[in-house]
Amino acid sequence: MSTYEIETSTVLFPNGDLSIDAYLAQPTQSGSFPAVIVFQEIFGVNDHIRDVTERIAREGYVAIAPALYQRLAPGFEAGYTPEAIELGRAYKMQTKAEELLGDTQAAIRYLRSLPAVDGAAIGTIGFCFGGHVAYLAATLPDIKATASFYGAGIATATPGGGPPTLSRTGDITGTVYAFFGDRDASIPAAEVAQIQDALSAHRIPHQIFRYPADHGFFCDRRGSYQPDAAADAWQKALQLFQSALERQPQAGLP
């Protein structure tokens, strides 16, 4: 299958008095494209997240990865050392659900201001902490497709405190695909079952995928990377975006 040539840039978009850093990747061809918001792990918008953003753009989407820690640590990005994990978790614990939702809505407004999006459908994909944020953001009416990768705490907590994010499931209006590793100690099988039960109870279009893998299996920079699971999950996420975002072939693609 042919892929799109892309261009990338670092951009700022406003949310009130806050300016949010983001990594933007989009096809160079003219036309209107659906958009996908990429939610980072606890390690910031680092090389892995930029790579995912570019991969999505090559499939014919405008992709943007906003910095979720903009209020706490502008420009933060890290690798996968124990020190980085400790720092990333510390920042994660200071985030708040309503701020994350507000920042996501600001990203949606920014995307809709781009000529290449121009009213097209919007989806999300998120990993680790970003997988939780993606499930949270699925409650926004503009989000039509959500790919949530091993988002811990969905069934038990929400950023900043309060009822767990799972309690908001009834507000979801799009389609949700959620990906988990059976060996992920941070997301017990019982919590995955709770997520599936909630999505079914609220009649949210969804699929749950389980792999014989650990947490972080999609990230090829981590020791837990599982290439077979990552490849299968990637194809399923693309299938979700192709169906739920109603992507149309664009002129100029070979």
Rank of each mutant, 00 (worst) to 15 (best):
I208G: 05
A145W: 11
G16K: 10
P254E: 14
I208N: 05
D220K: 09
A145P: 04
I20G: 07
L136G: 04
T95G: 11
I37T: 08
R222Q: 12
G31L: 10
D184A: 01
A78E: 01
V117A: 03
Q239N: 14
V192Q: 07
P115I: 04
N46C: 00
A116N: 10
T28Q: 15
Q94D: 01
G119H: 06
G123R: 05
E83L: 09
Q94C: 05
E54T: 13
V52P: 00
Q70V: 12
S243A: 15
Y61R: 11
A121H: 13
S224F: 00
K96S: 06
P163V: 13
G102R: 02
H48L: 03
T156I: 05
D182L: 15
S148W: 14
L140M: 07
A229C: 06
G130E: 06
D142G: 12
E7K: 11
I20A: 00
G102W: 00
A230P: 09
V62N: 10
W234C: 12
W234L: 08
E5C: 09
S9Y: 07
A25G: 13
P212G: 10
D17L: 13
V133S: 04
I143T: 06
T124Q: 02
K92G: 09
A145K: 09
L87R: 06
Y150C: 03
S2T: 14
Q242A: 13
G170S: 10
L253C: 11
G153Y: 01
Y23H: 14
G126D: 04
D220H: 07
T158C: 09
R89K: 14
I20S: 04
T173E: 08
G131H: 02
T81S: 15
Q207G: 08
L140I: 05
A251C: 04
A97R: 13
G216F: 06
F43Y: 09
L72G: 03
A231C: 04
Y211R: 01
R112A: 10
T8M: 05
G161W: 13
D228G: 06
A22E: 07
G131K: 02
S186T: 15
S224T: 15
R89T: 12
R71F: 02
L101M: 06
A145N: 08
A90V: 01
S30H: 12
Q207N: 08
G181K: 01
A155Q: 03
G216Q: 07
M93V: 00
Y91L: 15
A193T: 14
S243M: 12
A157S: 15
G223K: 15
V36L: 04
R50D: 01
